[in-house]
Nucleic acid binder design. Sequence first.
DNA 1: CACTGATGCGCG
DNA 2: AAAGCGCGCATCAGTG
Length: 552
Amino acid sequence: MFFLLRRLPDGDVELTRYERSGSGRLEATGVESIAATDLPARVAGLEHEVSPRWVWDDTPRWYPRLLDAGVTVARCFDLRLVHAILRRSTAAPRFPPGGAAAGPWDVAQAGPGEADGLFEVVPDSLPDPAGEFLAQREAIESSSTRGRLELLVAAESTGALIAVEMRHRGIPWSPKAHDELLTAALGPRPGPGERPARMRAALADVRQALDAPDLNPDSPAELIKALNRAGVLVQSTRQWELQRHDHPSIAPLLAYKKMQRLLVANGWTWLDAWVHGGRFRPDYVPGGVVTGRWATSGGGALQLPRAVRGAVVADPGWTLVVADASQLEPRILTGLSGDRAMARAGSGDLYEGIVASGAVATRAEAKVAMLGAMYGATQGESGRLVPRLARRFPDAMALVETAARTGEAGGVVDTLLGRSSPRPSDDLGTGGAGAGALPPEMGLRPADRDARAWGRFTRNFVVQGTAAEWALCWLGALRRRLHARWGTDAGAPHFVFFLHDEVVVHAPSAVADEVVALVAESAVEAGRLLFGDAPVAFPVTVAVVDDYSRAK
DNA sequence: CACTGATGCGCG
DNA sequence: AAAGCGCGCATCAGTG
């Protein structure tokens, strides 16, 4: 049963019930209007009675206020996210009914919202959510791959709930531990505009070694000139290029750059800006990446450096259950392609299995070759090793090759559950894949170079996108289990972080072992949902730790 | 002053 | 050892 929520102009909320008629059609069977302040209680009541799927335009517009009122919901249908999937999906060819032009539903998710206060702005609903809902249901139910599409939109919508819930709870963050980490790495916190002591020392060494007393180390142009003057012939200031030179300036320079990075990206200023009340609350953006991965905004949550993970500290009496899906993308490729040899290789550590198959000599080679196959490497060690994989694992390789050829020809590729790639003309082409520097695909006409780049994108899209679907299913399955076992009160285990193939659950120490078991069960369930009984395993690595740096 | 693009580096 | 996917963010340098 669906309940659609819509904000009315007077600020009240209209709640419409949809049920299936005898013929199986979805019909509105009841409408009520309620004051916004009464909404949480009404939602909680219905949640308990009939276990509805809540339909709303955009989860961040509705769910934070429910959570503030202590109300958690089990399921929803996020119209904005489903719209984004359907409008591109080859599994829903006639959506949107009005045609392909971008409309009011093709928007970013609502921002995290103003801090709770008197003047909180209540955004209007996106236009005609009821019409949009019925059009989406029609598109899904008439799809020739309806089952997969249903799973995709359910998983995507549950992800939207989890994203808001994680922001609501926040990542437990110890300012004290963070400050100690920074002090150990950089020296004590300096005054405004000053460099920390250890950075000053490193910089003094660099300036002396380059005989450049006024050098600004943060200006790449200036740095290159100074290095060249000292006989260090570099064309950029990238770490890996600097590393290749032997000069007294290099070691302190690399040390300086490392410290500068930490200071600027996750130093004291970051701590002041992003951590409040012992919690870091990034804004998660489900579906924010074309492949279906989540994006984040605020505080750089997508790139929490290892150097500061020691500041993610469980509350007293609690612990962090850190779980990671091992070698997820190659396993996804195994499932997608049905490659039996690769399935055998993946019965234990996949890379060791590839070595055992005789394709390559070492685990490191196996990893580089595998990544090269999924990313479309053509050069270097990775490019050289790929053909050796192709001989042993022809089915897996054929799948990514086909995806690449399709993309090069301007075609669309699909994930397992039915998320489709954009077309090159969708204007991701100019700023997207391959638009970066000028890799030495010399001798190719620009059009051919773009085609190759787009082929690498579509090659990777099927794997990365299906991996994102697996991860959503994993998360959704785990959430259901956690709620069934411990409920949703403040004392229950809950997600606090998610990053592509890794999840962190904050749990009372006494139940950590049970959570670990549920994490593994959920991975099995996700594998079944996507690949049925196909012989592909999804092992998870789980660590129970007091702080995040101790995982892995 | 605000902006845009390039650079560099962190994460998966 | 340094090309091969997807991101976000800070900073510099050039432009309007």
